[in-house]
Nucleic acid binder design. Structure first.
Lengths: 237, 237
DNA sequence: TATTAACTCCCCAGAAATGGCGAGTTCGAC
DNA sequence: GTCGAACTCGCCATTTCTGGGGAGTTAATA
């Protein structure tokens, strides 16, 4: 496996389009010897991109129903750092059970293992393998291959970012230190008056920072600006 | 190396305090056979934690001068996904050159290679190795060990998160679906009126959601509530 | 079935944020 | 040495939020 994965990563470097990547994902499924393999990226601008081996009808259904808001895999990985076995997630709740039922019917294996991946500007992606092995076989399988999956997740995401924006480096213009300060205070719950006092500047100056930050972030109001700054990883609250 | 890294990762699982981790970091330097090795995390609560082999005087100086705002390694990694060789970073600019001079004097090797790591809630960390090898030797070294460094970075960060908050999973407070909807709309920049229309409810109802969310999140105003929901990973914008 | 939580609706007054006007200093970079 | 970008200050009118009341319906769960 180690050798095949290395070969795969090298081979993937040639990919230049998202279609190429989709092809590699299918190849990767064989390398990992599982039934399904999914790479799904959500960037902070709301754009989604997926390369996967699930049936397309299920993908359509998933998007149409906005199942990402229910899917325990997405919700669980979003608040974890380390990869997680689907069995460890919280599957209680009516909506979730209904969702799971549908997913089973659609042919998604009952076993699954997902690796959360995060990139600059609040990018979030998932690398998932799923299968029908028994619990014991699956435990043994995942234990043996966690590291391979972490690496595969990393390189697939790196390639996807590179394809999407030409490089994996983002060209976002930075907020000035004072703009960061201002938004940080607001994110901590201070009112404008309190924030201004905290920073020892006039409330008006504070407003200038907020507005220029709003402009840079393309935000329509203060809350939006703070939200964008947070999801872009610009604030350390 | 592969074998020694595996052993290291297993050994590190026993670490229970940050001091333990510091010890492992020193051990890891030998595994990687470099002069310095640094793990530096900035968690979402603003606390910083570092485990490293640099001289402490340099660390103090770095913190005191808030050099993270200047350091091209931090700045560059912050907007990249893939690990990066220090040579590829932008070292122009007066402040940066001064900083580099000081770093050299402090004994930081001229060669360096850093892996950006991101966790839930905007956590950001760096895993860095630095050395004094020649350019060619360093290129060969980094090329051979990128994957090892990615894995080491992952597991060190996972351990650090686990130590810091007991688990790598962030705590969930249950906002109701409508509360999530409401905060999501606001985080996307909608005004209350627009959000209410989007959700097909009266503006007043929307207010009820915002206020109950504010209460649950212990937030002092709408912006704060949205910020907290985002950093708690409750919203996927 | 009982109970809890979520969901939905309405009014008013005071507090806070926004939009639009302008202006001077300092610092590093080209 | 000019240029741009960051930092700092003020006022007024308008819009938007917040805090304080109260109340009925559905859906899940114990």
């Amino acid at each position: 496996m180690q050798g095949r994965l290395d070969t795969f990563i090298e081979g993937m470097q040639g990919a230049e389009t998202l279609d190429d990547l989709q092809g590699h994902i299918i190849g990767l499924r064989d390398v990992f010897d599982v039934e399904h393999l999914v790479y799904h990226s959500v960037n902070a601008s709301g754009g989604q991109y997926a390369a996967l081996t699930y049936p397309l009808t299920w993908v359509d259904r998933y998007l149409e129903q906005d199942y990402a808001r229910v899917d325990p895999v997405v919700q669980g990985c979003y608040r974890r750092f380390h990869p997680v076995d689907w069995k460890r997630l919280d599957w209680s709740g009516k909506q979730v059970r209904d969702f799971m039922g549908e997913a089973q019917d659609a042919g998604v294996g009952q076993q699954g293992f997902s690796v959360p991946i995060r990139g600059p500007n609040g990018q979030f992606a998932l690398f998932t393998v799923s299968d029908r092995r028994t619990d014991t076989a699956w435990n043994k399988y995942t234990e043996r291959h966690v590291r391979d999956m972490i690496l595969a997740a990393h390189f697939v995401n790196q390639k996807a970012l590179e394809i999407e924006r030409g490089t994996d480096e983002t060209q976002q213009r930075n907020l000035s230190p004072r703009e960061v300060d201002a938004l940080t205070m607001l994110a901590m719950g201070y009112s404008r008056a309190q924030a201004a006092e905290s920073l020892s500047i006039s409330e008006h100056t504070l407003r200038v920072y907020i507005e220029s930050a709003r402009f840079k972030l393309n935000a329509s109001n203060t809350t939006h600006a703070v939200a964008r700054a947070l999801t872009l990883g610009l604030l350390i609250v």
